[in-house]
Design a protein around this nucleic acid. Structure first.
Lengths: 203, 203
DNA sequence: TATACTTTTGACCATTCGGTTAAACCTATT
DNA sequence: AATAGGTTTAACCGAATGGTCAAAAGTATA
């Protein structure tokens, strides 16, 4: 039945997500995914014809899930400062529940940059400055934000949020050595990063 | 001759570095490395018995090369502000010449965290705070740096420097869309990141 | 030049891996 | 109960992969 079918496809998808996140495209084994889904390997190919098909499906969904989290910033009508605080809280909370996502996505894109191209080529980054300008015209004078520094500030905000997860493997070892708990560090980071950025851009 | 031997081992090592950086451990093929080095595949196993041996050699050297760049900060006797400026200039310059290194190292560590453990377990991060305290006792009052915020600030500095390279694949696409040149962005980042951090931590 | 030793090679091996096939199994419809 | 449809499986396949081996090629020493 279609109910059962959804179940199986879902099982496969969830298993594939875990294995791909953990091992990467080239490191993942179809057999591991089948085992984890509790099904036969041939059934994988029945639902998703090839490994690449399956990977593409998983990757696209995860990447969208990730980039979606950046959207609300340009939608709601908070102040710039509120938006920054909102972003760090939401984005870091999301990654707390998906700690392996950032490293996985960054890595796979570096291995095959064209994969992301079709995903974000539709988004009009060109209008980004105009959009921000119209929403926050008055506030921009208060902060050191110009069309020139926008890429730097955007990247900076993304860095502060994403990097700790992308570098989790290293940080955990270093922090352990310093007697710092990674999870606690992340919890504190929501406010620290927001304060840090706001302090830095305020004239 | 030993001269020739060094030549061959060197050729293998360089080829392996390129292939591993590009494809990762699981994606790299011994045949590709042999081809790139212009030698027989069996010769790889003559010099480095297994793929894992070869990878370990390459990874260890690259990881050391990377982390070495953090050292001078705790050695020279510049002021805190000078150290921050010095770090961003040196570290980003280094990565400009090795743009694939950050992503490679982060990814391989996430896949196998214990790999980094033996490399940095010798470093005494516990004394880090004491070391900084003794070198910059007076300055620390000027900045918002305490033993509690140190991990956040350290991670922040690393983020601002490393992340743009770890996310190069994405940023290049986005920047292209915005009419921004990645290399120019990186060049500007050396000063932007330093200014940003100093502004943020100055009371 | 003969000998001993190291380096390099081509051919080969065992295993793993993504993918296929034909048959068995289920489930709904008649 | 018989039929037809999709779903699931065990067994299998060819190619790719990491690794081995014995012989060839090179080199230094006597």
């Amino acid at each position: 039945m279609s109910e059962n079918e959804k179940m199986t496809e879902e099982k496969i998808f969830e298993a594939a997500t875990i294995v791909f996140e953990e091992e990467g495209l080239s490191g993942a084994r179809m057999q591991s995914i089948a085992d984890r889904a509790g099904i036969n390997k041939a059934l994988l190919h029945y639902y998703f014809r090839t490994k690449d098909h399956l990977f593409e499906a998983v990757f696209t969904k995860l990447a969208k899930k990730m980039f979606m989290k950046f959207n609300p910033i340009f939608e709601n009508n908070l102040s710039l400062e509120e938006k920054i605080r909102f972003f760090f809280k939401e984005h870091i909370s999301f990654m707390q529940q998906n700690p392996k996502l950032p490293g996985f996505i960054l890595n796979e894109i570096n291995h095959n940059p064209q994969r992301i191209q079709k995903l974000i080529k539709n988004i009009e980054f060109k209008n980004l400055w105009l959009k921000i300008l119209e929403q926050h015209k008055d506030e921009l004078y208060k902060y050191n934000i110009t069309e020139e520094t926008l890429p730097q500030i955007m990247t900076t905000i993304a860095s502060l949020s994403v990097f700790p997860f992308a570098a989790k493997g290293i940080l955990e070892v270093i922090f352990e050595n310093m007697g710092v708990d990674f999870d606690k560090f992340i919890e504190l980071r929501k406010n620290f990063a927001a304060d840090f950025v706001i302090k830095a851009i305020t004239k």
